[in-house]
């Protein structure tokens, strides 16, 4: 993992390296074990089938991790110790969905000589539906 990107390589309008992941019930169950969030809407298929969602859904934070991986690929440890994000969960992701995180650099600005990279991103499913939309800021130093 890189420490930080070369600022000269970053430009307004640049695409971020997209990340595509396949969601499975097994991964959702693992995420529940790792995070401690065993809400039945995520892990109990019989329960979830009787709800308006008609089946289990992935934890929103699991899908957000795909966007964070994209940011890590683009900005390395600068993202992990100097990143900010603000997102909306727009739709549920379900087992067997393929989710793609994509985004772009909107602007680069300086505050007290420190460069900040402003990005926008989204996560979409295989049908093009937006699951997460949001923005992020990375302090490069």
């Amino acid at each position: 993992m890189k420490e930080k990107p070369n600022l000269a390589d970053l430009h307004q309008g640049d695409s971020l390296p997209s990340v595509t992941k396949h969601v499975t019930q097994q991964k959702i169950n693992l995420y529940a074990e790792a995070s401690g969030d065993f809400n039945p809407i995520h892990v109990d298929e019989a329960f979830a089938a009787k709800t308006p969602l008609k089946g289990t859904i992935a934890h929103g934070m699991l899908i957000l991790a795909y966007a964070s991986e994209m940011m890590t690929q683009a900005f390395g440890q600068s993202w992990l110790k100097g990143g900010k994000l603000s997102i909306r969960f727009k739709a549920a992701a379900r087992p067997q969905d393929n989710i793609t995180a994509s985004g772009q650099i909107d602007s680069i600005e300086y505050k007290e000589d420190v460069p900040y990279v402003n990005c926008s991103f989204e996560c979409r499913n295989q049908n093009g539906d937006v699951v997460i939309s949001g923005g992020s800021v990375v302090r490069l130093q």
Binding site: G60, M61, L64, L80, G82, G83, K84, R88, F89
Partner: peptide, 13 residues
């Protein structure tokens, strides 16, 4: 109930 939105700032590894 649903988790509608989220903000995070990462400060330290």
């Amino acid at each position: 109930s649903i988790h509608a939105s989220q903000e995070f700032e990462f400060l330290k590894l």
